[in-house]
Simulated scan of single mutants.
Amino acid sequence: MLTSPLRIAFIGRYTEGQTGIVRSIYMGLLENGHEVHEINLSKRLKIIFNPYRNFGGFGPVYIKWEMIRDEVLSFKPDVIFICAGGLTFKPSTMDKLKKYSTVIGVTLSDPDVFPSVSKFASEFDIHTTNSPLSYEEYKKLGMDNTFYMPFGIDSRFFQSREPDEKYQSDVSIIGHYRPYRLEIAKELLQRFEAKIFGRGWPIPTEGPVYDEEWFKAMYSTNIIINFPTTGAGYTNVKVGVFEAAATGRLILTEYFEEMENFFEYDKEIVGYKDKDDLMSKIDYYIKHPVEARKIALAGQKRCMEHHTWKMRLQHLFQSFTLKDPSLKWEEID
C-alpha cells in the first residue's frame, strides 16, 4: 500500500493532445504529489516499434528500451507507468525491468482491445482496465494482476473558460464520426442551434478540436450528447461523460446500467431511450434552462467529489503493495 510519493517514469502518447485521457492521467499523478519523469512518445516516435501496425489501443506496440535506458537509469523510478496505446516492452526486457521497478500497464480502450491486450497483460506487475466486462474476462484467464480503474478527470477541467462566439451553441456533439451517430447529428443540425466537432464526419462540421480549442468548444455549449457505444459495438461508460460533467455541461446519454455507478439519471445527467426521446428532451431543456443548469451543476459536483484521476490513482495504488525490487538500478546490466 502506498504511504509516500513515488518516483514514476511515465510513458505515453498524447494522441488526443493535452486534453486527452493519457495526458489527464499524467496530471493526476502530479496532483497526487508523485515525482514524474515524462516520456512523451508523441514527440519521440522513434522510440516506438510497431511491427504489427496496431493502433487505437490495440497491441502489442513495443517501447524500445535501448532508446530510453539512460534517462530511466538516471531517474531510478519506483514505478514504470505505461499508459495505454497497446504499449509494452518485449518480454525479455519486461522480465529484466521488473527486477528493478514495479511495472504498471494501463488499458483504456477495453472491451474493444481485449482480444489483443489479453495476450500480454499478464506480463505487467500491475495491469488496469477501464471495462468491468473485460475485468471479468481477464480474471477468467487467471490474470490476478488486473484491476478495474474507471475513467476520471484532472483538475484542469474544472477551471471555467469564457464562451467563444465561434463555437456558441445550444447543443453539441464533441466526438469523432461513427455511422450510428449520423442520423442524430443531422437532426440536431436541422432542429437546433447545434455544433458537431470531430474527425471523419461526412457532413459539414467544425472539425476536431484539441487542447485549448477543446475547452472553448465545451464551454461554449449548454448540452452535450454522449454516445456510450464503442467502435466494436459494446456499451460502456466513456471518458467523455466525465469531461462534460467536469465543465458543468448538461449531459444527455442513453440509459444503461453501468452509468448508474457514476451518476444519477435525471438528477446529475439526463437519460434518453431513443432518438425521438433525445430530441424531445433537448427541446425541453433548452426551454427550461434553470432546470438544465441545476442538473448540470449537480453532475459537476459529483464529478469533482468522486471522479477525478487523483482519486482513481490513489485508489489504485492503495489496492496493491509495491514490490521491493530484487536489484537496485545501479546494478542493471
Rank of each mutant, 00 (worst) to 15 (best):
E136T: 12
A245N: 05
W329D: 05
V290C: 09
V61M: 02
G33L: 04
Y285L: 00
K281I: 00
T128N: 09
D70C: 08
K301N: 11
P289T: 10
W65T: 06
G56P: 07
G56F: 11
D112G: 01
W309A: 01
K99V: 07
E35W: 13
L6T: 04
Q300F: 05
E260G: 10
R293Y: 02
G17N: 08
E183V: 09
K166D: 11
P91K: 15
M259E: 01
L278F: 04
L327P: 06
K186F: 08
E258L: 04
V171M: 09
Q318I: 12
Y167C: 08
A292K: 08
T93S: 13
P60K: 04
S118G: 08
E291W: 11
K46R: 15
F242N: 04
I48G: 08
S74C: 14
G86C: 02
L41C: 11
K281H: 03
S122L: 09
Y234I: 03
K43L: 15
E183T: 10
N261S: 04
A9E: 07
F75S: 02
I11A: 01
R191C: 06
F317I: 04
V290A: 15
N54F: 12
P228W: 09
N226W: 01
P5T: 10
E162V: 12
R181I: 12
E123T: 10
R7D: 06
E123C: 06
E213H: 14
Y272K: 11
T3P: 10
S169E: 05
